[in-house]
């Protein structure tokens, strides 16, 4: 396969990368390349210069924040998330979801930054990051700003990134005391692309759900919180019956997308099932010692 003629540059610093991106409309960051390479092959976007950010120290590594959260460099790969002791210790599910993205080759190259900046509705990490209240740290030559993950994903392959702006890191706050997370996908085959996903985080106060996040993916083109369902969960019993009752109305106020993989109504029904399972996982995780449940794969 012959790609269109393109320039390539590997800047030595973040500032140099931002400089090139600011000066050239046709410049595109190249991270893991596991989507962008195919975009170039298909010639669906015209790129003048590929700015290889994958070796920049400023975008690498996972650090523990002062409050016990995580600061994850944009070019951290799925495999690094999977193997990170820090991630597994406090945000076990994030490592687990990363460990089930497609296959080992893609996990060795694909980055958390690329997974988010592409805003492909089938990508695994966005709904989980929204459920965990993650914050996207963006930088351009003009300066740095923080955008809540819930506001970052704007549409089908569209994000809040402005021209010339890079995602530099993702901040994941600490899991609240007594909380747990869950994640389920409806897919044909293990670790495959999903038709519907749900990601959840619940905080328990004894036998009661004190607070919750319920995020649906592939129902719209971006991850969406079902705040009606969250309101039904909050203050309710953390029992299977009560969770099932709260999730029975999931996606009722929404108009799920329809495509070759499933009709709108099928997605709505499956969203209820995925939501119930994800919330149940989160409750089980909150009761266990782990912040993020073991059950359920991706």
């Amino acid at each position: 396969m012959l790609l269109e003629q393109v320039e390539y540059v590997r800047p030595q610093s973040l500032d140099e990368a931002l400089e090139i991106l600011a000066n050239d409309d046709g410049a595109a960051p190249l991270a893991g390349g596991q989507s962008l390479t195919n975009v170039l092959k298909n010639r669906v976007a015209s790129v003048d210069v590929l700015v290889d950010i994958s070796r920049l120290d400023d975008l690498a590594g996972i650090a523990r924040t002062a409050d016990g959260g995580l600061s994850i460099g944009a070019c951290v790969t799925y495999d690094e998330l999977d193997r990170s002791a820090d991630v597994r210790q406090t945000h076990w599910l994030l490592g687990e979801v990363a460990a089930h993205i497609e296959d080992q080759q893609i996990r060795n190259k694909g980055t958390i930054g690329g997974n988010c900046c592409l805003s492909d509705p089938t990508n695994n990490l966005p709904p989980l990051l929204v459920a965990l209240d993650a914050v996207m740290e963006l930088r351009s030559r003009a300066g740095q700003r923080s955008v809540a993950s819930a506001d970052f994903f704007k549409g089908y392959f569209a994000t809040a990134l402005e021209p010339g702006e890079l995602l530099v890191s993702v901040t994941v706050p600490p899991m609240p005391a007594g909380s747990g997370a869950g994640y389920t996908s409806l897919a044909v085959g293990a670790d495959a692309k999903a038709m519907v996903r749900a990601a959840a985080r619940v905080t328990l106060d004894g036998g009661t759900i004190a607070d919750s996040r319920l995020v649906l993916a592939r129902v719209a083109h971006v991850p969406v919180r079902d705040t009606d369902a969250e309101a039904r969960l909050n203050g309710g019993d953390a029992t299977e019956e009560s969770v099932a009752a709260a999730c029975a109305g999931v996606a009722d106020g929404m108009q799920p997308i329809a495509d070759v993989h499933g009709s709108s109504e099928y997605r709505r029904q499956m969203a209820k099932v995925m939501a119930r399972r994800a919330v149940s996982q989160a409750v089980a995780a909150a009761r266990g010692s782990r912040n993020g449940s073991k059950a359920g794969g991706n």
């Binding site: 190249l30 390349g33 390479t37 495999d79 080759q105 893609i106 060795n108």
Partner: peptide, 24 residues
């Protein structure tokens, strides 16, 4: 990037060589 026939090991990491550019 779907079939894996092009898999090689780069710096100790298994990758698909059709999903990487030579200058990288």
């Amino acid at each position: 990037g779907n079939c894996g026939a092009c898999s090689v090991i780069v710096n100790g990491k298994l990758v698909k060589s059709c999903m990487i550019l030579a200058p990288q």
